[in-house]
Amino acid sequence: MPLLNTLMKFARTPQGRRAMNRAMSYARSPQGRKQIAQVQRQLSARRKPR
């Protein structure tokens, strides 16, 4: 799990915190919520057996 460790180290840096804050504020915005819902629909459509 070296990738996860690398991501955790990055998240603790000031740069990582800024990136997380930007991502969180985008996720809270109407445009972000719309895009998240769209991706969720696409992923759930892929999981349904045909």
Rank of each mutant, 00 (worst) to 15 (best):
M1I: 06
M1N: 10
P2T: 15
P2I: 12
L3Q: 03
L3G: 04
L3K: 03
L3N: 05
L4H: 10
L4M: 10
L4S: 11
L4I: 14
L4N: 05
N5C: 08
N5F: 15
T6E: 08
T6Y: 06
T6D: 06
T6P: 03
L7G: 07
L7R: 05
L7F: 14
M8G: 07
M8K: 14
M8N: 10
M8E: 10
M8A: 12
K9V: 11
K9M: 08
K9E: 12
K9Q: 12
K9P: 01
F10G: 06
F10K: 08
F10H: 08
A11D: 04
R12T: 07
R12D: 08
R12E: 10
T13R: 03
T13A: 01
T13C: 04
T13V: 02
T13Q: 01
P14V: 00
P14I: 06
P14T: 07
Q15L: 08
G16C: 02
G16T: 06
R17L: 14
R18W: 05
R18G: 05
R18I: 02
A19Q: 09
A19V: 13
A19F: 12
A19K: 07
A19N: 00
A19Y: 11
M20A: 15
M20G: 08
N21M: 14
N21P: 00
N21L: 13
R22V: 15
A23S: 13
A23K: 10
A23H: 11
M24F: 15
M24Y: 10
M24E: 10
M24T: 09
M24S: 08
M24D: 08
M24I: 15
M24V: 14
S25T: 03
S25H: 05
S25P: 02
Y26W: 15
Y26A: 06
Y26P: 03
Y26C: 01
A27D: 09
R28S: 14
R28H: 15
S29A: 11
P30K: 12
P30M: 13
Q31I: 05
Q31G: 10
Q31V: 04
Q31L: 09
Q31T: 11
G32N: 01
G32Q: 02
G32S: 03
G32R: 05
R33D: 03
R33M: 14
R33Y: 11
R33A: 12
K34N: 12
K34H: 12
Q35C: 00
Q35Y: 04
Q35K: 09
I36M: 11
I36T: 06
I36W: 02
I36Y: 01
I36A: 03
A37I: 05
A37M: 10
A37F: 04
A37D: 11
Q38D: 13
Q38M: 14
Q38G: 06
Q38P: 04
Q38Y: 13
V39D: 03
V39R: 02
V39F: 03
R41I: 15
R41S: 14
R41N: 12
Q42H: 01
Q42P: 03
Q42T: 09
L43V: 05
L43H: 00
S44R: 14
S44E: 14
S44I: 01
A45E: 08
A45N: 10
A45S: 11
A45Q: 11
R46F: 06
R46D: 07
R46H: 04
R46C: 00
R46V: 00
R47D: 01
R47E: 00
K48G: 02
K48Y: 00
K48W: 02
K48F: 04
P49W: 05
R50P: 02
R50S: 10
R50I: 07
